[in-house]
């Protein structure tokens, strides 16, 4: 099978993630969409590694997983704090800072 198809799939997943970030209202769901974007990138890295015939892409995918895990730690901490303060994780309710 042509590995380029996996790149198309990753572009599709990335776009779904990006659309989710822009359209969804719950901070947790927005954050999950960001994670979907990162994982779509991993798929692209692995597919390209196969096409280029070197291991770099696969190694990078591991780095991205570690970074994504660190991001989850920070992100959930922030979102949970906001939730405890406001009793809501909606990104629309955080609207004190504007103009």
């Amino acid at each position: 099978m042509n590995p380029m198809n996996y790149v198309y799939l990753s572009a599709l997943l990335f776009s779904i993630g990006a659309a989710g970030v822009l359209l969804r209202r719950n901070a947790i769901v927005v954050f999950m969409c960001v994670e979907l974007m990162l994982n779509a990138t991993n798929l692209a890295f692995v597919a390209f590694a196969r096409m280029q015939g070197n291991l770099d892409g696969q190694v990078i995918a591991f780095f991205v997983m570690v970074v994504a895990a660190a991001e989850v730690v920070i992100g959930l901490a922030i979102i949970v704090t906001i939730f405890r303060t406001r009793r809501s994780a909606s990104v629309d309710s955080a609207n004190l800072l504007k103009y």
Binding site: F48, Q52, G57, V91, L97
Partner: peptide
């Protein structure tokens, strides 16, 4: 409240932009 809101906004948008940055790296690697 303002501080936490700033943190949330910075985090969500920052993570969003670094996902773009990373996909750019993937394409340049390809």
């Amino acid at each position: 409240l303002l501080s936490q809101e700033a943190s949330l906004k910075y985090f969500l948008l920052g993570a969003f932009s670094s996902a773009f940055f990373l996909y750019g790296i993937a394409l340049l690697y390809g």
